[in-house]
Design a protein around this nucleic acid. Structure first.
Length: 377
DNA sequence: GTCGTAACGGTTGAT
DNA sequence: ACATCAACCGTTACG
C-alpha cells in the first residue's frame, strides 16, 4: 500500500510535470489531494491568501482543503495563524536564535570574575539575573557561562583581551537587537517556541524597533484593497530577495486561471505565482517579507496592527486592521458578519456560513478557474 | 465527516 | 567552505 502510494505519487508528479510543463524544469510533490507542494517550503502567498479568503466567505476548512488541494492540516494551521496574528504570511524560516552572550553580558561576567575569581558559573548566572543584566529568558546557561569564562575571559591578566577585539558592547547589542527585534519574554509563544508567529505580541519594549509592520498582510488589506491603492505609490516599495524558487509551473498547475478574486487583480496573483515567495506585486499587500534577510524577523516583530496585545480581534486602530476588527470590505468583498475565528466552534456550525450554499459553490468554483468537486456532504 | 495536532522529513539561514 | 543548529514549512495520520 505504501509502495503503491509512492508509485502513484511519483506518477502524479511525472504526470503533472510532463503533461503540463513538458519543457519546464520544475519540482515538487503531489499530496493526497493532488495538490502540488514543495516539501519544506511555504505555500505560495496566493494560496495562503485564498485559504483565508475562502474561510472568510464561510467556506468550511475541509472544503477549502479539497478545493485548493491543500492538506486540511495546512489549512487549519494557516487559518489558525491568521486568526491569531492577522497575517497570512509564513514565519521566518531559518536563522538562529538570538545569542544570549552579548558583549555586555560577557563584560559583566568578566567583571564578576575579576571581582571574585573563585565565583562559580551558577553564581554568575544568579548575579546576571539579580543585577538585571539578563532576565530569565535570556540569561546564559551555566555551561555557556563556563564556556565564556574559558574562551573569552580565560586569562584575566589580559582584561581587555575581549573588548579589544570586539566592537563596543552597546553598539553590538543594538545591532543585534535590530536583527532580532523580538524580546524574549514576548517572543516566546505559548508553546515555548521561538518566533513561531502566533500570539507573539512583541512589544517594542527595550528594543524600540519602530518598524511598524503595517499589517498589510492582513486580508483586510489584501482583499480587494488594491483597487483603490495607488499602485505607483506602492510599487517598488518592497525589495524581495532575489532568491526565487521555481514555483511558476507548480503554481500554474494549481492555478491555471489566476484571475481576479475579491479584488486581487491578476497581476497580484501572477506575481505570486512567479513566485510565490513574496512577490513584488503581492508585496503591495504584503510589504513585510518573512524572506527578506534584512527584515524577516521584523515580520513578527512589528508593534503595529498585525500583532494584537490582548485580544487579537480588537481593533488595532488601523485601517489595515484585522478583518474581524471592523474591517471595511471593498465592493465585491464579503461583509462577514460572523466572527471569523472558528465559527464552527462557536456553536453555529450549522449553518456554517453566512452565505448560501450556492454562493459558496460559486466562490469555490471561481477560485481559480477550476471546477473541482466540492464536498458532497 | 470534520478538525486539531504530533510526528515526520524537508528547507533555510545564522553561527 | 562546510557542518551544525534551530527555526520554519506542508503532509500525513491519528484521535
Amino acid at each position: 500500500m505504501e509502495f503503491m502510494k509512492k508509485v502513484l505519487s511519483a506518477f502524479m508528479i511525472e504526470y503533472v510535470h510532463v503533461s503540463l510543463f513538458p519543457s519546464e524544469q520544475t519540482y515538487g510533490e503531489v499530496n493526497q489531494l493532488g495538490g502540488v507542494f514543495v516539501n519544506g517550503r511555504p505555500l505560495p502567498n496566493a494560496i495562503r491568501l485564498r485559504i483565508v479568503e475562502l474561510a472568510q466567505l464561510g467556506i468550511r476548512p475541509c472544503d477549502i482543503s479539497r478545493q485548493l488541494r491543500v492538506s486540511h492540516g495546512c489549512v487549519s494551521k494557516i487559518l489558525a495563524r491568521y486568526s491569531e496574528t492577522g497575517s497570512i504570511l509564513p514565519g521566518a524560516i531559518g536563522g538562529s536564535k538570538p545569542r544570549v552572550t552579548t558583549p555586555n553580558v560577557v563584560k559583566n561576567i568578566r567583571d564578576y570574575k575579576q571581582g571574585d575569581p573563585g565565583i562559580f558559573a551558577w553564581e554568575i548566572r544568579d548575579r546576571l539575573l539579580a543585577d538585571g543584566v539578563c532576565d530569565k529568558y535570556n540569561v546564559p546557561s551555566v555551561s555557556s557561562i563556563s564556556r565564556i569564562l574559558r574562551n573569552k575571559i580565560g586569562n584575566l591578566s589580559q582584561p581587555n583581551q575581549y573588548e579589544s577585539s570586539k566592537q563596543a558592547p552597546t553598539q553590538a547589542g543594538l545591532s543585534y537587537n535590530h536583527i532580532y527585534p523580538y524580546s524574549y519574554p514576548n517572543a516566546m509563544s505559548p508553546n515555548g517556541k521561538m518566533g513561531s508567529g502566533p500570539g507573539v505580541p512583541v512589544t517594542a519594549g527595550h528594543v524600540n524597533i519602530s518598524r511598524a509592520w503595517p499589517s498589510a498582510h492582513t486580508v483586510t488589506n489584501i482583499l480587494g484593497i488594491r483597487a483603490f491603492m495607488d499602485h505607483q505609490a506602492i510599487a517598488g516599495a518592497e525589495g524581495y530577495p532575489p532568491k526565487m524558487e521555481d514555483w511558476s509551473s507548480i503554481n500554474r498547475a494549481t492555478f491555471p486561471s489566476a484571475h481576479a478574486v475579491s479584488g486581487i487583480d491578476k497581476s497580484a496573483i501572477d506575481a505570486d505565482i512567479k513566485y510565490a515567495q513574496p512577490s513584488s506585486t503581492l508585496s503591495s499587500y504584503v510589504p513585510a517579507c518573512a524572506y527578506s534577510p534584512s527584515n524577516q524577523y521584523g515580520v513578527y516583530s512589528g508593534p503595529g496592527s498585525y500583532v494584537t496585545p490582548g485580544h487579537p480581534w480588537q481593533s488595532q486602530n488601523s485601517s489595515l486592521s484585522h478583518p474581524s476588527s471592523g474591517m471595511t470590505m471593498h465592493a465585491g468583498d464579503i461583509h462577514s458578519p460572523m466572527p471569523f475565528k472558528h465559527p464552527s466552534r462557536e456553536g453555529d456550525r450549522k449553518p456554517p456560513s453566512p452565505l448560501s450554499k450556492q454562493l459558496q459553490q460559486e466562490a469555490l468554483s471561481s477560485v481559480h478557474g477550476l471546477n473541482l468537486p466540492t464536498s458532497s456532504s
